[in-house]
Computed example of a mutant assay.
Amino acid sequence: MIGGRVGLRRVGPDGLLTFGLSNLVIVLTAGLSWLALWGRMHLWVRSLDCPGRAPWVIVLGQQLQEGCPGPGYRLRLLRTLRLLRRDPEARVLLLGGYTSPEGPSESAAGAAFLRQRGIPASRIFCEEDSRHTLENLQNARDLLVQRTGGRLPRCVLVTSRFHLPRAVAIARGVGLEVCPCPAERSPRVPQVRLAREIWMLHWYHTGRLFARLIRHQGMLDRIS
């Protein structure tokens, strides 16, 4: 789907409700709920290294720059390239839809990057319909179910280090068994981007908890 990233106007009434509730919790706790989550995730992402082998590598896309992977996306793809060269049996699932009407999808641009560096097309699979991380990983789950006949395999999940806390939480929330793998070798994390990710992770956790408390299966289904 073309149209870039999804803003608040497109998340639906449930999303707006839980967004407001998440921010209310942050205000009522004087920021402590967000700060506690940030502190735990900050230590976690700095300690991460790339794990061992898995039959599938899942790579989260990033908005393209003039139809090509930008610096952050290139780091994710270079990390993936090393994983695929290390394990010739592994396959890769690239996630990400269209950044602009005239350009390729994020996943197609990633696939071209890997093919140009010697990875056979037979090992590369693309998901081109998603607009954001939740859709990325829901679609990844559904595609892997189709490819494996119903049994979800263990996967390595590659994305930027600052993005891993939210990506891993969502991946496990939709039923994927993932090992987090940061794109960057350096443990340093851009603090502004991590702060934004933790704010969104706080929203995700608040929404799941709220849906469970009121036993709203429809809300849970939309984020699972």
Rank of each mutant, 00 (worst) to 15 (best):
R40D: 10
A211Q: 05
G7E: 14
G72N: 09
R76D: 15
R208A: 15
P51T: 09
R123W: 01
A109D: 03
S33Q: 02
L152D: 06
C126Y: 07
L201I: 00
L28N: 12
R185M: 09
P55W: 08
Q65R: 09
N139Q: 08
W34L: 05
E135Q: 13
G20W: 02
I26T: 10
L77P: 13
L32G: 00
V27M: 07
W203I: 00
S186Y: 03
S107N: 08
H42S: 12
W56P: 02
I2C: 03
V145F: 01
F162T: 12
V6H: 01
Q63K: 13
R85M: 15
R185F: 05
E106G: 06
L94Y: 15
F113H: 11
P187H: 07
Q191L: 04
V174Q: 10
P180G: 14
R79C: 13
L201Y: 09
R9K: 15
G7V: 10
L21K: 10
V174P: 14
D129I: 03
L21E: 08
I119K: 12
P88I: 01
W203H: 02
P104V: 05
R10E: 11
G72E: 11
R86L: 13
R185A: 10
T99H: 04
V57H: 09
H163L: 01
L176A: 03
N136T: 00
R196S: 06
E184R: 05
G207T: 12
T148Q: 03
T29K: 05
Y73S: 04
S33M: 02
R79S: 12
E66H: 07
A195F: 11
F125L: 12
R9S: 11
P180N: 08
V6I: 15
R115S: 11
V11Y: 15
L28K: 09
L78W: 12
L137M: 00
R10V: 04
I2E: 09
R91S: 13
R196D: 08
G96N: 12
T29D: 07
L48M: 05
T29E: 03
L144I: 03
E106I: 00
R215W: 10
W44C: 06
L95H: 06
L60Y: 10
S122A: 10
V156W: 07
A171T: 08
S22W: 13
R222I: 02
G52L: 07
E197R: 05
L17G: 04
V158S: 15
S22R: 06
R91F: 01
A140W: 04
L28G: 10
G150W: 06
W56R: 06
A171F: 02
E184H: 14
P120H: 06
S224I: 02
N136F: 10
H163N: 11
T148W: 04
F210S: 11
E127V: 00
G218H: 15
L137V: 00
R5A: 12
L164G: 00
S107V: 01
A167T: 01
F125Q: 15
